[in-house]
């Protein structure tokens, strides 16, 4: 087995630096990092911060591709720093930059708010006409495994913004909704519990909505979770066109409140404690 403490080779990190208080524009600073086997780019940045330059800023949390904080531009490709091994992508040189198509807050920290605002505008939650049932459920919504699979892939999105950084349309069109919000819209449109598609169609079918996607495919190539936003957007467009032509099968939200047990709880489950919160209407 390889000795994980042994330095394999030195790799030069060309890191984009930008301090909004002192710098007019970003510049590149180079650090030499001794790389061990299995070392991720995130580990390399930690090495720089601990040993070479404590002022370097970036965002991270979980270190295991779950939280979506450490999206960066590594050798020109947007991806997560935590699940990219240095030796897999770099011989001796590695460029590390912030995700493009977002404002830079500092160094490698992009401002993802523009993405989250677009995400919010698409109502990324189950929208139902029967609000009383949502606030005070009388049972469960029954969904078959096939119905689940119609949107499950798009639920794996971790909102890291890599797809937005890879998208050529977003490079020029600041108002384009982008791959991540659009695939989130498709995720809820496809959910049998949801009634919200007509509302979302108003946004996804707008001038800067789904039809600004021209299938360059970079979002699906960049996605570190295999969510395949390009696929979601094409299915979304299909549904928009069918809705416009009134050819879509009439989809009503799932009305069945009980699963195979027809709402009868198994006898051995103790009663729920009394409610402590009353949902507001």
């Amino acid at each position: 087995m390889a000795d994980s403490n042994k330095t394999v080779r030195d790799v030069k990190f060309h890191v984009t630096r930008y301090n909004p208080e002192t710098d007019a524009a970003p510049y590149v600073k180079t650090y030499t990092v001794p790389v061990r086997e299995g070392m991720t780019v995130l580990d390399g940045l930690h090495y720089i911060k601990e040993n070479l330059d404590g002022s370097l800023a970036w965002r991270f949390s979980c270190r295991m591709g779950i939280c979506g904080s450490c999206g960066m531009l590594l050798n020109g490709r947007p991806t997560l720093a935590c699940n990219t091994q240095i030796l897999h992508i770099a011989e001796t040189q590695l460029t590390v930059g912030p995700l493009p198509n977002f404002d830079i807050i500092r160094d490698l920290v992009p401002d993802l708010m523009s993405m989250f605002e677009k995400h919010r505008s698409l109502k990324p939650y189950v929208v139902r006409a029967d609000e009383a049932e949502v606030n005070d459920p009388a049972g469960e919504f029954y969904q078959t495994p096939e119905q689940l699979e119609a949107y499950l892939q798009f639920t794996y999105c971790i909102k890291c913004g890599c797809c937005m950084a890879a998208c050529p349309t977003l490079a020029t069109d600041a108002r384009y909704l982008g791959p991540m919000p659009l695939s989130a819209a498709q995720r809820y449109n496809q959910d049998t519990r949801d009634d919200g598609r007509p509302q979302r169609n108003q946004v996804t079918g707008s001038a800067h909505g789904a039809f600004r996607c021209h299938y360059a495919g970079e979002c699906s190539r960049a996605c570190p979770k295999g969510v395949d936003p390009a696929k979601a957007i094409q299915h979304l467009k299909r549904r928009l066109v069918l809705d416009y032509l009134r050819l879509a099968r009439r989809k009503k939200a799932c009305q069945k409140l009980h699963g195979p047990g027809q709402g009868q709880p198994p006898g051995n489950i103790p009663a729920a404690p009394p409610k402590t919160v009353t949902p507001s209407a």
């Binding site: 079918g205 707008s206 001038a207 909505g209 039809f211 066109v241 416009y244």
Partner: peptide, 12 residues
């Protein structure tokens, strides 16, 4: 939805 209309006819 207006853009959906335009794009549908653009494809057609």
């Amino acid at each position: 939805m207006r853009e959906t209309k335009y794009w549908t006819w653009h494809m057609a």
